[in-house]
């Protein structure tokens, strides 16, 4: 059994250690907000946080996670109201929605590390996340809106 720290909870998995974390989260722990897109770390749909860093959960074996804290889209904010999530709704980013958990997790990690990103920072930071509906312009707009919201909160 592997002990995992997911969204602040301690959870057990009986998956073989070489199982990609993605499938443990989705199919065993049923945190289905994390999506399978490519299995090779090329699309970003499966992005989660490992100790706050955005990682591709399809590229990490569950046996290698150790004591690191895993955060999925379900655990980003208890009410789904992280500034990035709020901005995503306000700017009306998602279309089909399938890649958006990954986009949001990527953006949240980006802003945690760089609270004042330039347009270039945002575009480059989000470039690894494919969106076939091409919601790209609104993703950039929403990241900027989230920056604003975070500042308002900090100063408010």
């Amino acid at each position: 059994m592997i002990n995992l720290k997911v969204n602040g909870q301690s959870l057990l998995s009986d998956a073989p250690p070489d199982t990609p974390l993605l499938w443990v989260l989705r199919e065993e722990l049923r945190l289905t907000g994390t999506r399978y897109g490519c299995g090779l770390g090329l699309c970003g749909s499966c992005t989660v946080h490992l100790n706050g860093q955005a990682v591709r959960s399809c590229q990490i074996n569950v046996g290698d996670v150790g004591a690191a804290a895993i955060t999925t889209i379900e655990g980003l904010h208890q009410a789904g109201a992280h500034p990035v999530q709020k901005a995503w709704v306000e700017i009306q980013v998602p279309q089909c929605g399938y890649c958006q958990s990954g986009q949001i997790m990527q953006a949240a990690a980006l802003l945690a590390q760089n609270p004042n990103p330039t347009d270039k920072d945002i575009i480059e930071g989000m470039n690894g996340n494919l969106c076939r509906c091409a919601t790209y312009p609104r993703i950039v707009g929403a990241v900027k809106r989230a920056v604003q919201m975070m500042k308002e909160t900090n100063h408010g």
Binding site: I73, W88, G97
Partner: peptide, 21 residues
């Protein structure tokens, strides 16, 4: 008006075929 299907697509609650058990 905001699209009614959008909030669930930002918090992991949106359901696609493979989210069925």
């Amino acid at each position: 008006v905001p699209a009614l299907d959008i909030p669930a697509k930002t918090n992991g609650q949106a359901k696609y075929g493979m989210d069925v058990f």
